[in-house]
Design a protein around this nucleic acid. Structure first.
Lengths: 141, 141
DNA sequence: TCCTTAATGAGAGTCATTCTCCTTTAGTGA
DNA sequence: TCACTAAAGGAGAATGACTCTCATTAAGGA
């Protein structure tokens, strides 16, 4: 736990961001809440230890973290914005029945896509990132 | 134009949906406004010829159309829902600078992905759809 | 043409997110 | 170590996209 917080401090100052208790607990919340929390999940989690944090602050910090690539936004077509503490390239599996979003890492796929798009070459466009959305239904749902 | 409306009528009744003037003009708006309009874009467009349409009606019709797979939802990074009149399998290019979403059709890519995921086989998961999100920046932005 | 049921209009309500403005604090430099 | 300044946070009002409710209207089948 100590170690996690030390790690968070380093990440923040590496980016030239002020290390504030609010920023630390928000990142801590994202790392603790596994499944792509919403802003609301994060606020609820933090209020336990930090009852006075303002919702505006949480949104502002989340924006800052996204800008500095310490977290990612996850787009879903069905509901509100979610946040993802994993910034390595990875994909998402969306269940059509429940609201779950699962992470999907697949280096073989990454290589395949990278090679494909390298060959392709877009005119007038600088490619930054490719994310695959896999939609389907879990049998358990 | 006559032809477009006839086409829309057919699509609606094929799905067993009542053919109402509101539904027709909403679909017409989506087909006319090319680039993935927001609900607001659609409302603005329709009000010209149909000033009394209620915003609630527009949202309700859009939901119905999505449910019946006559249109698709797309979400931008800035968290605004947009609607897409193209329901064939296709992908999207997201610009990090502007909020534009461009369509990206690529059958070679579709085949590649289909083969890849056929080989892969997920346990306990029924695959429905694979969409690739391509993020980057247009030089013009 | 009539009847039933679904669709629409109007407008109030909701709720995630943003804004404003004042206070507090992190980090720098003396 | 302390003081200063710009950046960050708190409180809560404001915004705006979307939803709900309920009375009215109209599509489509009998």
């Amino acid at each position: 736990m100590k170690r996690l917080i030390e790690n968070i401090r380093n990440k923040l100052s590496e980016k030239g961001l002020k290390v504030t208790p609010q920023r630390i607990s928000i990142l801590e919340a994202i790392y603790s809440l596994n499944n792509h929390p919403t802003a609301d999940n994060i606020i609820e989690f933090i209020r336990v230890s930090h009852p006075n944090i303002a919702t505006g602050t949480v949104y502002k910090v989340l924006d800052t973290l996204v800008e500095n690539k310490l977290i990612k936004k996850v787009k879903t077509d069905r509901d509100i914005l979610r946040y993802d503490g994993i910034v390595d390239n990875h994909h998402h599996i969306y269940c059509s029945e429940c609201d779950l979003i699962e992470d999907y890492k697949d280096e073989e796929l990454d290589v395949l896509l990278k090679e494909y798009f390298n060959k392709k070459q877009f005119e007038g466009f600088k490619l930054e990132d490719i994310v695959v959305q896999i939609r389907g239904t879990f049998d358990k749902c």
